[in-house]
Design a protein around this nucleic acid. Sequence first.
DNA 1: AAGACGAAAGTGGTTGA
DNA 2: TCAACAACTTTCGTCTT
Length: 308
Amino acid sequence: MPELVKKCPECGGINLNWNKERGEIICKDCGLVIEEKMVDFTQEWREFDSEDGERRRAGAPMTYTQYDQGLGTEVGQKADLFKLGGKERNKFFRLRKWQYRISTAIERNLKLALAELKRVSSYLKLPKSVEEESARIYTLAVQRGLVRGRSMESVVAGALYAACRRHDVPRTLDELSEASGIEKKEIGRTYRFVTRELGITILPSNPADYIARFASSLKLNAETQSNSIEILEQAQKAELTSGRGPTGIAAAALYVSALLHGEKRTQREVADVAGVTEVTIRNRYKELLEELKLEKEIKKTKKIKKKR
DNA sequence: AAGACGAAAGTGGTTGA
DNA sequence: TCAACAACTTTCGTCTT
């Protein structure tokens, strides 16, 4: 449930209502539409890709800056324009013009960044929803000046990493690193910085979310895959998962499951696709055997093998 | 010869005073 | 702000298949 905004910037209320269809987040306390541009926004940045050069901004992503620049929330909302008198109207246009000036600088940045974002995203074959989410995150970051002192690319990578996690399709830092050409450390750093500054909460990723991807790159069959998820569930019950890296746990579960189904993969093979070391797999693997009493089953499968 | 195992030392991040 | 700490990595020697 993506919920970038935790508090209403107007009244500070936390009673927010998310309307999926309309892409709005509405504060139940004061009625302010906080995220009404979610949809507009994606339309707009897609336009950056089209060849027909000049696009005029209608002010869509400016909702974010409005708050930052201390402008009233009514700026840019056309409906209100007709209610205003001459003086107010002038003010309205002045503010609009000012906004426009700010916007061009940001826009220049965005144009480059979103192209890069799209490149990395398609390289990783990420779903559109993630691409859009990361674009939103990046835009917020730019508008809050979080990119200053950091490379644009690293913030893009960080935004993508965050978006993946929020949509439960996590990629490892290694994958992001390979796709973006940014160091793992750097991505992690900016990711943490950006999410903290923007107040984005991200739950620790679920090991199960990695299973499908790892299993398919290891060419394991469906049975092995679903069994490894069962192992994961047991591991979670035995409280083997908290505090551990989710990728390591997923890798170990797959490794065990592969053994049990006679589809043995070496620790190195599993370690490589999961982006952890063999040592980590061994440690998790050991814990799994101890807690889940799987030793006998492992021995059984070994014996069966010998008979053949 | 390759894979599995585990000890030891190092790294980067989190936590708590 | 700093030190202790846990998770994970790297490296390397030894054992197993």
